[in-house]
Nucleic acid binder design. Structure first.
Lengths: 392, 392
DNA sequence: GCTATTCGTTCGGTCGTTGCACTATTGTCT
DNA sequence: AGACAATAGTGCAACGACCGAACGAATAGC
């Protein structure tokens, strides 16, 4: 009752993984790709069809002689993964189907810092229920801006009330597996799984918010420390500097390249950019507008940020030697003004500075990564999805 | 001809791994540990005995009722792994048996930098042959102080003639699988596999030579960049500083905490410690002697090194959050004078500064890690070892 | 229409694990 | 001393998964 089924699971997973990574293909092609026999692949595909995970598609004409093969492809209708993001001023939900298509998306402005966590989670749960009315979910992953152990928040610089909260417990009513993880980590996974640089072996993701977060994928796996590194990248002393940081120390990287640093450098205290009551995205949009208009001070501030990013990235690049460094969050929004000084600073310190690119996933990276993680168990062991009844 | 045998291999590996990690135990205990059936374990153990990998030991009395079990333990006589270290002024060889015991050890002073690589490898090969006369080897791993891709040296700051040399090709006459890897990486693996902190999930190893090397184990696996990070830790700008470095840049960590920096700070140019013709180990011993005698300047120099180590380690600790940071090389030799300032600097920046410890493996760490790597294939797939004939 | 070619399925065979029965060996209780 | 309980290890039939070869199916080209 052990290894027999494990072999089956592993082979089902191999077939499913090939279909995900290399696209639809015939059974015969799957056989040569996986090294299994045509007979075995037929049996495996049959079981995956019964579980609602794959479906037969069109005939495949290879343009040459011989009987055309029947394309087998992932069946998106079967199962979906749900990613939820709890952030300082909003909740977001995204539903990804097995084929990687976005099936549903929702966003709700919520003052997470002011409300009790339980109420926030109740709203998140309602959003999840709505998503589930149309999409069969197998799991939920919650992206949280802080350090998480198990499903309990350990550190949350911007949401101090959440420390100690068990996020999964707040969603237990869903009767679904709930995973909780750092938002930057999940964003890194999203870039690794779906972006234009999908499945590179090593990837570093940096996201600019008020602070700076980061996630690292090495050897195809997310790097986690014994407690989960998560938001710590922003609090490294990667660049010279002596600004006091909210964490109590001085010279943290995010005091140099965080959004707060940009606003401080780009505008004097009386400037509307420095108005703490104003929405951050508005202010960021204005920064970009000023830069596009050629405002010298704004451009200089952005160039300084870019240089700081380059100096700090040099350390990360030397350590991890990633194939690509992806910039997300506000870095991507004003990236056009950051990249040149960044690459210049990086090129002075490491060999290949062109590996720094801007994220194309925007602010959905975290939820997307969450949904991807929620689907992971299906790809690792397709037998977790129950067999469907045969309808005639 | 595919998955059937893979199941067998995986289960053989599971049994062998349990015996390595958790010590000798009875078949019944193995069955409950692995989740396999007693019958299956009996069969697996039988095959492992036939391959000369395990042997039956004494009876095991659990102190309670019932028939006592027969202990099954790793059989060291069967196969050995060989670790070879090519370093600037010596060659070293160490033979590890399956049970993790050191079976043989040798060291030869060789001016590697002056001789042609082929000649050095010929001497190494002779040392390996001598080791093999008594110990049946399944593989050789060469530790090299530089960056390695495949078996070809890519960077070698202290052995420039070796760049481009295919080290495995120089040992092809052995007719054994030859692996080549960075010496610090292998040392990190050695600490992870054998030291007092064996099998912690995350471990950072730092070694002080003329430069500074490092290896990182995260999630039980050695961290490698797309090209192999290896010696790059020494060339990160982890601490403030502006000294020119041999790599062409300024402010590299090893200009602050490398052995060269220590000697510079501890003695004036005329001092015998600064005599470039003198053996480094001699000079290092003299540094330690002066420190133990209470020489103020030496102690101050060591304290500065310790502080620099602490500041730089803070970045590594924050990034990787390892359970332990192991100091090897010269750091371990004079560690008694480094640890206090190091921990002070580290404690100011991260939570747990006590995780920094000194290596107990000394200068054999690299060869030990190499031998461990050479044995790895046996533990991953025990069927690679041929069946032995039955002697009556 | 015939052949070559490729696709997918059917069927017997091999192999490894399982579950149970059975023997072996020891401690404990009467 | 003898019976009983408990634990260790092995033998055997059965099951499940994959493999290899053979077969029917579908298409292009002649």
């Amino acid at each position: 009752m052990q290894t027999q089924a494990q072999v089956r699971s592993a082979n089902l997973a191999a077939v499913l993984g090939h279909l995900r990574d290399d696209g639809p293909r015939s059974r015969a092609r799957l056989a040569t790709d996986t090294g299994l026999t045509k007979a075995t692949v037929s049996s495996l595909v049959g079981e995956l069809v019964d579980r609602g995970l794959v479906a037969e598609g069109e005939l495949h004409r290879p343009g040459s002689v011989g009987r055309p093969g029947t394309l087998v492809e992932l069946d998106g209708r079967g199962v979906c993964g749900i990613g939820v993001e709890v952030n300082v001023d909003y909740l977001a939900v995204l539903v990804l189907d097995l084929a990687g298509a976005v099936r549903w998306q929702d966003r709700l402005a919520v003052d997470t810092a002011a409300l009790p966590p339980a109420q926030v989670l109740a709203r998140a749960s309602a959003m999840i229920w709505q998503a589930r009315t149309e999409h069969p979910a197998v799991g939920v992953t919650v992206a949280f801006p802080g350090g998480v152990q198990g499903s309990v928040v350990r550190t949350a610089p911007n949401l101090p009330r959440w420390v100690g909260v068990d996020v999964a417990a707040g969603l237990a009513g869903q009767r679904l597996p709930v995973t909780v993880a750092n938002d930057a980590d999940l964003s890194a996974l999203a870039e690794w799984s779906a972006g234009p640089h999908a499945h590179v072996a090593d990837l570093v993701y940096l996201t600019g918010e008020i602070g700076v977060g980061g996630g690292v994928v090495t050897g195809g796996r997310l790097l986690r420390g014994s407690t989960g590194l998560g938001g710590e990248i922003g609090h490294l002393a990667l660049t010279p500097g002596d600004e006091p940081c909210g964490c109590g120390r001085r010279g943290c990287w995010e005091t140099v390249v965080g959004l707060a640093a940009l606003l401080r450098a780009a505008a004097d205290p009386g400037d509307p950019l420095r108005d703490p009551g104003r929405d951050l995205e508005d202010r960021l949009a204005e920064v970009r507008a000023r830069a596009r208009a050629g405002d010298a001070r704004t451009l200089a501030a952005l160039a300084d940020i870019g240089t700081g990013l380059g100096v700090g990235s040099a350390v990360l690049v030397s350590l991890f030697d990633p194939a690509v460094v992806v910039l997300g969050g506000y870095f991507a929004v004003v990236g056009e003004f950051l990249l040149d000084p960044l690459r210049a600073a990086l090129a002075a310190r490491v060999e290949d500075a062109d590996r720094v690119v801007l994220s194309t996933l925007g602010f959905t990276a975290a939820v997307r990564g969450g949904a991807h993680v929620a689907l992971q168990p299906v790809f690792s062991d397709p037998t977790t999805v129950p067999l469907m009844e045969a309808y005639a």
